[in-house]
């Protein structure tokens, strides 16, 4: 079997597995896989109740990866994420207690609810992939993917991530409500969840209870895919397209802050992973246009004139993309 076919089969198996518990959300699954295959991080923006946690849980189990979830709150401390040194009174020595960041898949739920120093601690760990506790520096497990979420509506009592920190997320995907038929299917599946009995008690099953435990692949398969993504061919013409697109965001009259070189790098990395997911060994403009919104939108800041005209970053980016092709 051709290697590309093998990878396509593995990716399809992951998608099918996730699909058994999460209805629809194909695009989110694809974005999560892109982030995972490129060692990037992803920020999910969407309302509560869109199965973000379930999705990450199912993905982690499908590839046999460790999964942790942190609910960000205003009183969270950096040590609650990174870990700390605890004094063992019996031996009078300090022992290290590693925090939930030491995992493969970390779901940082409602990241904008924590104080900036906590956000900063996580974002630093994301970039450096190592954490210092006391005098020791520990490397984070490989692979390491942070999936952060934030609610775009409730803004009171939140600390908005500044542009420099948003730039560290390779992708920012906006989750939408499921389509009508998908929502009907969600309800139908929920009706079939059933009840689990334990001892003398019984409790209604949740979707988390039906996530299959056996993986469809292991870390070795994932390593092969990460390696394969790095071998996806990027033509000179594709690089020209990326530079053209990022450059247009910098000179657009409605944009105050355009895409950084990191945005261009993310576009190339994302396009490589998407090409592999779609069974190609080279990137094409479809990959660029498909990922442009998720890579660029959170990196753009509109100027006062655009805001006064009631424009949004999405409107301006759409205009730029339409002008391009």
């Amino acid at each position: 079997m051709d290697k590309t076919e093998k990878f396509t089969e593995f990716i399809q198996a992951i998608r099918t597995r996730v699909g058994t518990v999460v209805v629809g959300q194909d695009q989110v699954v694809e974005r999560l896989l892109i982030a995972l295959f490129t060692s990037g991080h992803i920020l999910l923006q969407g309302m509560p109740g869109l199965a973000k946690t379930l999705l990450v849980n199912a993905l982690g189990k499908a590839i046999h990866l460790d999964f942790s979830r942190i609910q960000f709150t205003v009183d969270l401390l950096p040590s609650d994420i990174l870990g700390s040194e605890i004094l063992d009174q019996s031996t009078a020595t300090f022992t290290t207690r590693k925090g939930p960041v030491f995992t493969n898949l970390l779901l940082a739920d409602e990241i904008n609810r924590a104080a900036p120093k906590v956000q900063g601690a996580l974002l630093e760990a994301m970039q450096e992939r190592k954490v210092t506790l006391g005098d020791e520096t520990y490397r984070l497990p490989v692979p390491f993917l942070v999936i952060a979420t934030q609610n775009p509506i409730e803004q009171s009592g939140t600390f908005e991530l500044p542009e420099a920190q948003l730039d560290r997320f390779m992708l920012c995907h906006r989750l939408n409500y499921p389509a009508v038929d998908e929502e009907e299917e969600i309800l139908r599946r929920n009706l079939k969840l059933g009840v689990q009995k334990e001892g003398r008690g019984a409790v209604a099953n949740t979707e988390f209870d039906i996530v299959p435990e056996e993986p469809v692949g292991d870390a070795e398969d994932l390593n092969d895919i990460i390696d394969a993504v790095h071998r996806i061919h990027i033509s000179e013409v594709f690089i020209k397209h990326v530079v053209e697109l990022v450059g247009r965001t910098r000179v657009h009259p409605h944009i105050e802050l355009g895409g950084s070189p990191r945005a261009g790098i993310s576009l190339i990395k994302g396009a490589r992973a998407r090409a592999l997911i779609h069974g190609r060994d080279y990137a094409i403009p479809d990959d660029l246009f498909a990922l442009a919104e998720d890579v660029l939108l959170h990196r753009l800041r509109l100027n006062y004139e655009a805001l006064a005209e009631g424009l949004t970053s999405a409107d301006v980016l759409d205009e730029i993309l339409k002008e391009m092709g």
Binding site: H241, E244, P285, D286, F289, A290, A292, E293, D318, L321, K322, M324, G325
Partner: peptide, 19 residues
């Protein structure tokens, strides 16, 4: 890019997002 624009124009897909 111009060829993509050509097909967008020909298939009357002006209002659609490029993707």
């Amino acid at each position: 890019r111009s060829l993509l624009g050509f097909w967008r124009e020909r298939l009357d897909l002006h209002c659609e997002s490029p993707a």
